[in-house]
């Protein structure tokens, strides 16, 4: 476990900012103690300092997870957000998409969101903007990338994709073994 290098921090923050914009600083400066990002097994964990101190007792091979896993760095040093980060993306998300109850299931099985399943969408969403997907009951279901801007969404036919799927909470069942 080690702190992130500058390069890694930039990569990760760039990725995060696609979803939560400048709210990143709320993640770092928290009123309830200092939180930090740590790299372990190529995964980035978001931990409070207090827990971090305790976790240093655990040897590297024996440490499985600590705090919340945000995502991992690929071998090509790109950063992939994991669904486990949803708890921290959802409250700060700038652009949101709500899916209809009928389309909920489809999204949770890993499919893209179609126009027909689109319930609501944040105004002024640009194309390829990172969005967090909610159910109509405001339960965060996952996140993705807007395939069309809000304006375009109004015009397209019902079967066209409006949000590309990236991660959904169905992964907790579908791929529990490779979750983090």
């Amino acid at each position: 476990m080690r702190p992130l290098t500058d390069e890694e921090t930039t990569t990760m923050f760039e990725k995060l900012s696609k979803y939560i914009g400048e709210n990143i600083k709320l993640l770092v400066d928290r009123p309830d103690g200092t939180y930090c990002f740590r790299l372990h097994n190529d995964r980035v964990y978001y931990i409070s300092e207090k827990i971090l101190k305790l976790a240093t007792n655990v040897s590297r091979e024996k440490l499985v997870s600590v705090g919340t896993c945000f995502g991992k760095f690929t071998k090509t040093q790109k950063f992939r957000l994991h669904i486990t980060a949803l708890d921290f993306l959802a409250p700060y998300a700038k652009f949101k998409v709500w899916v209809k109850p009928g389309a909920e299931q489809s999204f949770l099985y890993g499919n893209h969101v179609l126009k027909s399943g689109l319930g609501r969408i944040t105004e002024n969403t640009a194309q390829y903007q990172g969005v967090v997907v909610y159910s109509m009951a405001d339960v965060p279901l996952g996140f993705g990338v807007a395939a069309k801007s809000t304006q375009e969404c109004r015009r397209v036919d019902p079967m066209s994709i409006v949000v590309f799927h990236q991660a959904d909470i169905g992964e907790y069942i579908r791929s529990e073994d490779t979750l983090t």
Binding site: S48, I51, V58, L63, V66, G67, C69, D87, L179
Partner: peptide, 25 residues
């Protein structure tokens, strides 16, 4: 058991628990 810890990781993240250290001793 490292194998069984995967379910712990899954459940802890799913339930939004952030104060855990998971280890395999």
């Amino acid at each position: 058991s490292a194998e069984r810890l995967k379910s712990v990781v899954g459940n802890i993240h799913r339930l939004g628990v952030t104060n855990t250290v998971i280890c395999n001793y």
